[in-house]
Amino acid sequence: SPTVSMAELDHQVQLISKSHLETCQYLREELQQMSWQNFLQDEVESYQSKPREVMWQLCAVKITEAIQYVVEFAKRIDGFMDLCQNDQIVLLKAGSLEVIFVRMCRMFDSQNNTVFFDGKFAGPDVFRALGCDDLISSVFDFAKSMCSLHLSEDELALFSAFVLLSADRSWLQEKLQVEKLQQKTQLALQHVLQKNQREDGLLHKLRCKVSALRSLCSRHTEKLSAFRAVYPDIVGTHFPPLYKELFG
């Protein structure tokens, strides 16, 4: 774009990368140190034998913890807090879980097909009690395919911001403002991909991930409604209030 200079793009990349690193919940080094810690068979079985509602509640708590970090990330994105409050909420309601799925590739071990959860690395079988094997397996497949792109922290930061600033979310009041922010982020993402000498098709591959993320999130909503239909009181009284605000 003729209106954005290289220096501005560099600055944008630096700012978003810093916000990402300050709010990413776990540093890569920390995760690497814990990478040998997998759940033992009896621990896996203990997760599998938990009542469905207990496992759902545990996952809701973990998702909520991660969302708090995403909210902090959003607040530190240049321009986000200048949006009207309605739009800040709309973007976080629609995008926070998507960012968690993007961030998940940092906590994912492709070789073992495990993800860092509740203190150790867990395979999909740990989540069996949820009764959502198909969704869990899609989430793991998504993480694996994100991992295969080998994104650096700055690329991941820019992509997360791009996802969060989606200007096509329903109920936005100042769509144009969000569009401007998203375009600026996309330019910064392109800039960082070029600077890191990534292959030409990577931006296209990342764009394809956006629809996969939407599908995962709508399937999460469906599974939650099905769960809520059976256990309305559990959701009402035991789920974190922030989780209910976002997905209720």
Binding site: M81, Q88, P241, L242, E245
Partner: peptide, 16 residues
């Protein structure tokens, strides 16, 4: 606003 009380609160808290 009432519907997203916690989110509002998180957004208003100053970044640490």
């Amino acid at each position: 606003k009432e519907k997203h009380k916690i989110l509002h609160q998180l957004l208003q808290n100053s970044t640490s």
